[in-house]
Simulated scan of single mutants.
Amino acid sequence: MITGVVITLNESKNIVECIQSLQKVCSEIVVVDSNSTDNTRELAESLGAKVVIQSYLGDGIQKNVGLAHTENNWILSIDADERLTDEMVSAIKQLDLSSTPHDAFAFRRRNYIGSRWIKQCGWYPDFCIRLYDKSQTRFAEVKQHAAVQAKNPERINADLIHYSFENLGQLFAKPGRNFSGRAAKIMYKKGKKANSFSPFLHGLNAFIRKYFFQKGFLGGVDGMTVALSSAVNSYLKYAKLLEYQRDPKVLENEDFDKVW
C-alpha cells in the first residue's frame, strides 16, 4: 500500500483536487501544513487526510517531516498544485511494490501555465521521482530544490500534471515565492562570491540555455517568457549576492536566519 504526502501553505484552491487525485492509488494521505491561515487544514481533514502542523523548514526537510506519520513504506509525494493523470494511476497500480528491485520511481511532469502545457525550455519531459520506499531513501535534507536520493530508481512513461503558474505574470512574481532572494542568502551563507559581471553573465547564460539549447524559440511567446523569467531570476540572484558583499547597510538589515 501507498501513503500520499503533501506539504501545504494556504492551498485551499488546490488541496481538494490534490487529495482526490492521490486517493486513486493511496490508502492514506498525510498533509504537512506550514500554519495555513485559510481553510486548507479543514478541507484536508474533511477528506480523511491526517494533518501535521510544522512551520516551514525548507523544501526537502519539510517533505521528510511527514514520513514519521505514515503507516506504509511506499510514499507518493506530490505538491498541492500537482495531479495524477489516468495513465499515471494505471502505471502505479501495475507496479509490484512488494518485490520490485527499485527503491523509487520517476514520472514525467507536464508543467502548465494557465491551461497551456509548456513542452520547451526543459519543462517536458521533466522526470522527477515521486514514488519511493521510505525504508531505503527519502528527500535530501536541503532547503531548496530537493530531490529524492534514490540509488536504483526506474523511469515510468506516465505523466504527472503540474499547474506551475496561473498566468505569465506569476513567472516573475508568484505570490509567496522569492527564489532569487532565498538563493542569494543561501549562497552568501556558503561563502559564494560574485563580481560586477556575475549577474549579467549568469542571466545571459540562463536565457541562452532556455531559449536556444532547450528550444524555447519553438514555444512562441510562452517560450520567450519562460526564458526571460529564468534570465531575470538568475540575474537577480547574483545581483542580490553582490549587494550583500558591497553594501554594509543592506547586509546589516538582512536576517539570514529567516531564509524562509
Rank of each mutant, 00 (worst) to 15 (best):
K185A: 10
K185M: 15
K185G: 14
K185D: 08
K185C: 12
K185F: 07
I186M: 14
I186V: 14
I186S: 09
I186D: 11
I186P: 02
M187F: 10
M187V: 04
M187Q: 12
M187Y: 15
M187C: 11
Y188C: 08
Y188G: 00
Y188D: 11
Y188T: 04
K189T: 07
K189V: 02
K189I: 08
K189N: 02
K190S: 11
K190Q: 15
G191Y: 09
K192P: 00
K192I: 09
K192G: 04
K192E: 15
K192D: 02
K193C: 05
K193H: 15
K193S: 07
K193I: 10
A194N: 01
N195L: 07
N195E: 01
N195R: 03
S196P: 00
S196K: 07
S196L: 15
F197R: 14
F197V: 11
F197G: 03
F197L: 15
F197N: 07
F197I: 11
F197W: 13
F197H: 07
S198W: 02
S198Q: 03
S198D: 02
S198N: 08
S198Y: 04
S198E: 04
P199Q: 14
P199G: 00
P199I: 03
P199F: 05
F200K: 07
F200Q: 05
L201R: 13
L201W: 08
L201S: 08
L201F: 15
H202D: 08
H202N: 14
H202T: 05
H202C: 12
H202M: 09
H202S: 06
G203K: 04
G203Y: 03
G203S: 10
G203Q: 13
L204F: 12
L204H: 08
L204S: 06
L204G: 02
N205Q: 14
N205D: 14
A206N: 05
A206G: 05
A206W: 03
A206D: 00
A206F: 10
F207A: 04
F207L: 13
F207I: 06
I208A: 06
I208C: 04
I208F: 00
I208E: 03
R209A: 06
R209H: 10
R209N: 10
R209M: 12
K210F: 11
K210N: 11
K210M: 13
K210A: 15
K210R: 13
K210L: 08
K210P: 00
Y211L: 06
Y211M: 07
Y211S: 03
Y211P: 06
Y211K: 05
Y211G: 01
F212R: 01
F212T: 06
F212A: 05
F212D: 01
F212E: 00
F212W: 10
F212N: 00
F213S: 12
F213C: 00
F213L: 12
F213H: 06
Q214V: 00
Q214D: 09
Q214M: 10
Q214G: 02
Q214C: 00
K215T: 14
K215I: 12
K215G: 01
K215R: 15
